[in-house]
């Protein structure tokens, strides 16, 4: 319980809560021989209850004025899930349909990014205990959403990709950013990057070196969801002409080879339709269900309303007791 107050100087009024120890606030009737009155446990109990109620009511009012709240804090949680970074391609071609043309708005044809959005939102809905971060890349990597368990935020981040896409595909920088999400050393659960792209690009040797090192260090699994456009080269295609067998001509094939050579758990899905993509995501969802240990952030909670409510109830009680007080004056 990390309790805090808005205005600590108001807490100086807290000793006022000790006042009921001094006086009960009831009209006292003089009695000449109190020692003659028999002891009464019920009366004694009520006497102390009145004092206690009054003290609590006063303390509640003072704490309410001072603005008592519970500070934002993190709660340790254990669940089945993974730390997932969704790395989305924001290149121009993502706005095209699987057929390789701009979606014409009929026959249920949708763009690759829209399909990815829809399926990933479903995916996020199904994963209860995951920590999910979102990054995008185009010419440069885009930081969208840090690792969080807040599903609403992740869904909003995915929905934000509905804006028109940007320019080119720079996959190495995107991967670098996705890897930078995994800051803490691994404790439990699995870490994975889900790379959703419809194309690839050559990786320069410098980046390649760094990526190899980071993938090793951070023990990340990689799922590549390759949204293949019709008639474009796939990841497993062999070049027809040996002269075309280079990274510039067939970046997908070479990127796949690079990922395979990383010696990390890696799985590539080549999806040629939304259905195939759905299948791929279901696979990931099924596979990545190791126990995970993480901290859930709980936002700050205002307790002054609670204080006022408690004081109100106590004051009502005291008012009722005051109403039950004997009104007659002592006989003259």
């Amino acid at each position: 319980m990390n309790l805090g107050v808005e205005s600590p100087w108001l807490l100086t009024a807290l000793p006022l809560a000790l006042l009921p120890l001094v006086g009960k606030g009831m009209r006292e009737h003089a009695h000449p021989g109190l020692m003659l009155l028999p002891p009464d446990p019920l009366s004694g109990l009520l006497d102390w209850l009145i004092r206690l109620f009054a003290m609590l009511a006063m303390a509640g009012l003072v704490l309410g004025m001072a603005g008592l709240h519970r500070r934002g804090q993190s709660v340790e949680r254990i669940g089945h899930g993974a730390e997932i970074v969704l790395l989305l391609d924001r290149s121009n071609s993502m706005d095209n349909s699987f057929a390789g043309r701009a979606p014409n708005g009929n026959e249920g044809e949708e763009s690759k990014s829209a399909a990815a959005r829809r399926l990933l939102t479903d995916f996020v809905n199904r994963r209860e205990h995951d920590l999910i971060g979102v990054a995008e890349y185009s010419t440069a990597p885009l930081f969208v959403m840090p690792m969080t368990e807040n599903k609403e935020a992740v869904k909003a981040a995915i929905a934000a990709t509905a804006t028109p896409a940007l320019a080119y595909t720079h996959v190495s920088k995107g991967l670098g950013m996705a890897l930078s999400f995994f800051e803490r050393p691994i404790v439990s659960g699995s870490r994975l990057i889900v790379l959703v792209s419809d194309g690839a690009a050559a990786i320069d040797p410098d980046s390649e070196q760094k990526l190899r090192q980071w993938f090793k260090e951070k023990q990340v699994r990689l799922y590549w969801l390759f949204l293949r456009t019709a008639n474009s080269p796939g990841i497993y295609d062999q070049p027809a002409d040996p002269r075309d067998d280079n990274a510039q001509a067939m970046p997908e094939r070479y990127l796949h080879q690079f990922f395979t050579s990383l010696n990390i758990p890696y799985q590539a899905y080549q999806a040629e339709s939304p259905d195939a993509m759905k299948q791929a995501i279901a696979d990931i969802s099924r596979l990545e269900n190791l126990p995970i240990h993480y901290f859930e952030r709980i936002p700050r909670q205002d307790l002054s309303g609670l204080c006022y409510r408690a004081s109100f109830i106590l004051l009502l009680l005291l008012l009722a007791l005051k109403g039950a007080e004997v009104k007659t004056e002592a006989k003259p």
Binding site: K24, E28, P32, L34, L37, L46, L321, A324
Partner: peptide, 22 residues
């Protein structure tokens, strides 16, 4: 009724929950 009584000589104060049995 509730009756708060104070002894005149010793100033001891007590609250009595007055009821027919008491």
């Amino acid at each position: 009724g509730l009756l708060s009584v104070r002894d005149i000589e010793s100033s001891v104060s007590r609250t009595l929950v007055m009821r027919p049995s008491l």
